[in-house]
Amino acid sequence: MNQSQIIEKMQTIFDKLFLEPVVLTPELSAKGVEEWDSLMQISIVVAVESLFNIRFKMGEVEATQNVGQFADLIARCLASKAS
């Protein structure tokens, strides 16, 4: 799965969890979305792990700066799971 395919899948989570519609782009980050607070961050990480059936290592998610980097992290997790 490439970055845009992963972002497309992530969009379903955001569609469900956000009251105001959010359109995911690689450049988008929590700072740009009012509803994306620390509680929402917990929800997003838990939902992403369950949707992609992956488990992040400690600190990995915090290190990502935007949706694009987050999607790349997901891609790496999926790849290492497959190998």
């Binding site: 509680l39 929402m40 917990i42 838990v46 369950s50």
Partner: peptide
């Protein structure tokens, strides 16, 4: 059933 669902509903409640 899931944590993110309940947190989401909590957010709606508070709003």
């Amino acid at each position: 059933v899931s944590l993110e669902e309940i947190l989401f509903l909590a957010t709606l409640r508070k709003r």
